[in-house]
Measured scan of single mutants.
Amino acid sequence: TGYYDVLGVKPDASDNELKKAYRKMALKFHPDKNPDGAEQFKQISQAYEVLSDEKKRQIYDQ
Rank of each mutant, 00 (worst) to 15 (best):
residue 39 E to W: 08
residue 36 D to F: 10
residue 43 Q to F: 11
residue 42 K to G: 05
residue 15 D to I: 15
residue 48 Y to Q: 03
residue 31 P to K: 08
residue 4 Y to W: 03
residue 4 Y to A: 00
residue 46 Q to C: 12
residue 7 L to S: 00
residue 14 S to W: 02
residue 25 M to T: 04
residue 4 Y to C: 04
residue 13 A to G: 03
residue 7 L to V: 00
residue 6 V to F: 04
residue 6 V to D: 03
residue 43 Q to Y: 11
residue 38 A to E: 09
residue 57 R to I: 03
residue 15 D to N: 14
residue 36 D to I: 06
residue 61 D to L: 06
residue 15 D to T: 14
residue 41 F to Y: 11
residue 24 K to G: 06
residue 26 A to M: 13
residue 58 Q to T: 09
residue 41 F to S: 02
residue 60 Y to N: 05
residue 32 D to Y: 06
residue 32 D to H: 06
residue 56 K to C: 13
residue 11 P to A: 07
residue 37 G to A: 13
residue 38 A to R: 09
residue 14 S to K: 05
residue 4 Y to D: 03
residue 42 K to W: 10
residue 33 K to D: 08
residue 14 S to C: 10
residue 57 R to F: 04
residue 22 Y to V: 01
residue 48 Y to W: 11
residue 53 D to T: 04
residue 55 K to A: 11
residue 27 L to V: 11
residue 25 M to G: 07
residue 61 D to I: 03
residue 15 D to R: 14
residue 52 S to V: 07
residue 47 A to W: 06
residue 38 A to W: 11
residue 6 V to G: 01
residue 60 Y to G: 05
residue 50 V to K: 04
residue 8 G to N: 05
residue 57 R to N: 02
residue 12 D to Y: 07
residue 3 Y to L: 11
residue 9 V to P: 02
residue 14 S to L: 03
residue 18 L to H: 02
residue 5 D to E: 13
residue 49 E to D: 10
residue 31 P to V: 06
residue 6 V to E: 02
residue 58 Q to E: 10
residue 8 G to T: 01
residue 35 P to G: 05
residue 62 Q to Y: 07
residue 24 K to R: 12
residue 18 L to I: 15
residue 34 N to K: 04
residue 18 L to V: 09
residue 59 I to Q: 13
residue 55 K to D: 06
residue 18 L to F: 00
residue 32 D to P: 07
residue 7 L to Q: 01
residue 50 V to L: 05
residue 3 Y to E: 01
residue 28 K to F: 08
residue 19 K to I: 08
residue 57 R to G: 02
residue 29 F to C: 07
residue 19 K to P: 00
residue 16 N to D: 15
residue 45 S to A: 12
residue 16 N to R: 14
residue 23 R to L: 15
residue 25 M to P: 05
residue 42 K to A: 12
residue 30 H to A: 11
residue 40 Q to I: 15
residue 9 V to H: 00
residue 22 Y to P: 01
residue 52 S to G: 08
residue 51 L to R: 00
residue 62 Q to V: 07
residue 41 F to M: 11
residue 16 N to G: 12
residue 61 D to T: 05
residue 34 N to L: 05
residue 41 F to V: 01
residue 25 M to E: 08
residue 16 N to P: 06
residue 57 R to S: 07
residue 13 A to T: 04
residue 29 F to W: 08
residue 52 S to K: 08
residue 35 P to M: 06
residue 59 I to N: 09
residue 43 Q to D: 06
residue 43 Q to A: 13
residue 42 K to C: 11
residue 31 P to N: 09
residue 23 R to E: 15
residue 61 D to K: 02
residue 58 Q to W: 12
residue 21 A to F: 00
residue 60 Y to D: 03
residue 4 Y to L: 01
residue 8 G to Q: 06
residue 35 P to I: 06
residue 23 R to V: 13
residue 46 Q to L: 14
residue 2 G to H: 13
residue 18 L to M: 03
residue 1 T to D: 08
residue 32 D to T: 10
residue 53 D to Q: 07
residue 42 K to N: 09
residue 21 A to T: 00
residue 46 Q to A: 11
residue 15 D to G: 11
residue 45 S to H: 12
residue 2 G to T: 15
residue 20 K to M: 14
residue 7 L to N: 01
residue 16 N to T: 13
residue 53 D to R: 08
residue 2 G to F: 15
residue 6 V to T: 05
residue 11 P to D: 05
residue 32 D to E: 09
residue 4 Y to H: 03
residue 18 L to R: 00
residue 12 D to E: 06
residue 17 E to N: 00
residue 25 M to V: 05
residue 41 F to N: 02
residue 44 I to L: 07
residue 7 L to P: 01
residue 60 Y to Q: 06
residue 35 P to R: 05
residue 42 K to E: 09
residue 43 Q to G: 04
residue 46 Q to P: 01
residue 60 Y to S: 05
residue 20 K to S: 12
residue 8 G to W: 03
residue 54 E to K: 15
residue 30 H to E: 03
residue 45 S to E: 14
residue 59 I to H: 12
residue 14 S to R: 05
residue 6 V to P: 00
residue 25 M to R: 04
residue 44 I to Q: 00
residue 34 N to Q: 08
residue 15 D to Q: 15
residue 40 Q to K: 14
residue 49 E to P: 03
residue 24 K to F: 08
residue 5 D to S: 09
residue 44 I to W: 00
residue 22 Y to A: 02
residue 27 L to W: 10
residue 52 S to E: 03
residue 49 E to C: 14
residue 29 F to K: 00
residue 1 T to C: 15
residue 36 D to L: 11
residue 39 E to K: 07
residue 22 Y to F: 13
residue 56 K to M: 12
residue 13 A to W: 01
residue 48 Y to N: 03
residue 22 Y to L: 06
residue 54 E to N: 12
residue 3 Y to A: 03
residue 1 T to K: 12
residue 47 A to L: 02
residue 55 K to I: 10
residue 47 A to C: 03
residue 56 K to S: 11
residue 32 D to K: 08
residue 60 Y to R: 04
residue 4 Y to E: 00
residue 37 G to L: 13
residue 39 E to D: 12
residue 17 E to V: 05
residue 16 N to E: 15
residue 10 K to F: 07
residue 59 I to S: 10
residue 21 A to C: 07
residue 18 L to Y: 01
residue 42 K to D: 07
residue 16 N to C: 15
residue 51 L to W: 00
residue 24 K to V: 06
residue 2 G to L: 12
residue 58 Q to H: 10
residue 9 V to E: 00
residue 53 D to W: 02
residue 3 Y to G: 00
residue 13 A to L: 01
residue 30 H to S: 11
residue 15 D to K: 14
residue 31 P to A: 07
residue 38 A to F: 10
residue 58 Q to K: 14
residue 24 K to P: 00
residue 44 I to T: 01
residue 9 V to L: 08
residue 34 N to T: 08
residue 31 P to Y: 06
residue 4 Y to I: 00
residue 48 Y to P: 02
residue 17 E to C: 09
residue 54 E to D: 11
residue 19 K to D: 09
residue 2 G to D: 14
residue 15 D to H: 14
residue 29 F to M: 03
residue 48 Y to E: 02
residue 1 T to W: 15
residue 31 P to M: 06
residue 37 G to F: 15
residue 54 E to G: 09
residue 17 E to P: 00
residue 21 A to K: 01
residue 36 D to Y: 05
residue 44 I to K: 00
residue 1 T to H: 13
residue 38 A to P: 03
residue 19 K to C: 14
residue 30 H to R: 10
residue 34 N to W: 08
residue 3 Y to Q: 03
residue 11 P to N: 08
residue 62 Q to T: 09
residue 3 Y to S: 01
residue 1 T to R: 13
residue 46 Q to I: 14
residue 27 L to N: 14
residue 34 N to G: 07
residue 40 Q to W: 11
residue 8 G to L: 01
residue 12 D to K: 04
residue 36 D to Q: 12
residue 36 D to E: 13
residue 30 H to K: 07
residue 27 L to M: 13
residue 62 Q to F: 07
residue 29 F to V: 05
residue 29 F to N: 02
residue 39 E to F: 07
residue 37 G to T: 12
residue 50 V to D: 03
residue 60 Y to M: 04
residue 3 Y to H: 03
residue 16 N to Q: 14
residue 54 E to P: 15
residue 25 M to I: 08
residue 11 P to C: 14
residue 37 G to S: 11
residue 27 L to A: 15
residue 45 S to N: 11
residue 19 K to T: 10
residue 23 R to G: 11
residue 50 V to W: 07
residue 53 D to Y: 03
residue 52 S to Y: 05
residue 15 D to L: 15
residue 4 Y to G: 01
residue 8 G to I: 01
residue 37 G to W: 12
residue 62 Q to D: 08
residue 46 Q to Y: 10
residue 14 S to Y: 00
residue 23 R to F: 13
